[in-house]
């Protein structure tokens, strides 16, 4: 049953920026990255999918609003419904919210500026993408966004917290005004995760603030082995 490697697809939309970084992170964690093209419905055998950061379609209209209609997203949505792990990072998180795979929305940072900084987080839930972390583990990974303020109605926020679906919270200062310091959330089954910070930029202390982000990619591989 257990395979040697698992294929993790990384979607490139026009305007995706961190797609190569996400693919590099998948490889660093021991997975096989598979590059997926927005206009192609074929997931090329991917066992899990990453929607990377960037400015898909220039973020015109609304962040992620156009990308959700890309042909590749039809298949991603179908497969996600069957339990395929999906991680949306930053712009990918926005796409997941626009696709209604995750509740809520991301709005302009409360500071009204793009913010790039090394951010301390607490991992607060074990999901398909965070199982490799200790419960409550603190990590430092970059956050970089202009529209990263997570919002949802109070009931949804209560629900997310009550069901243990808040995946990560900001520590040492909330960089964008996200409700309840939420940095990431999961769907009810913990397979689909949206995260505003960028774990793919923290896979090697040489090029990032730490290697703490590798755990997201290691987690999904572990999840796939167990499946």
């Amino acid at each position: 049953m257990a395979r040697v490697t698992f294929r993790v697809g990384v979607v490139t939309f026009p305007g995706s920026l961190d797609d190569r970084d996400a693919a590099r992170a998948v490889a660093a964690a021991g997975g096989e990255p598979v590059r997926l093209w927005h206009a192609d419905e074929n997931l090329r055998g991917a066992d899990a999918v990453v929607l990377p950061g960037g400015f898909s379609y220039g973020d015109y209209l609304r962040c992620g609003a156009i990308a959700r209609f890309a042909p590749v997203m039809r298949t991603v949505l179908e497969r996600a419904a069957d339990g395929m792990p999906v991680l949306g990072i930053c712009n990918g998180f926005q796409v997941l919210c626009e696709s209604h795979l995750l509740p809520g929305a991301l709005i302009r940072n409360d500071v009204r500026r793009f913010v790039c900084r090394d951010q301390r987080l607490r991992i607060t839930a074990a999901t398909a993408w965070t199982g490799a972390y200790e419960p409550g583990q603190q990590v430092v990974i970059p956050v970089k966004n202009g529209e990263g303020g997570y919002v949802a109605d109070e009931r949804t926020l209560d629900e997310l917290e009550g069901e243990g679906r808040v995946v990560a919270r900001y520590l040492d200062g909330n960089p964008n005004g996200s409700a309840r310091d939420i940095a990431g959330i999961a769907n009810a089954t913990g397979t689909v995760v949206g995260l505003m910070p960028h774990p793919e930029h923290a896979i090697d202390p040489l090029t990032g603030p730490s290697a703490d982000g590798l755990g997201f990619f290691a987690s999904v591989l572990r999840t796939l082995v167990a499946a």
Binding site: R24, G53, R113, F114, C116, H201
Partner: peptide
């Protein structure tokens, strides 16, 4: 100023401001 700039994208930034010079890896 510099926190408004993405210094991480492309995953090859080894040094960036406020360091003396920016350093970028060109061959992984």
């Amino acid at each position: 100023v510099t926190d408004q700039y993405d210094r991480y994208v492309q995953g090859n930034t080894v040094l960036a401001q406020p360091e003396d010079a920016g350093v970028v890896r060109i061959d992984e």
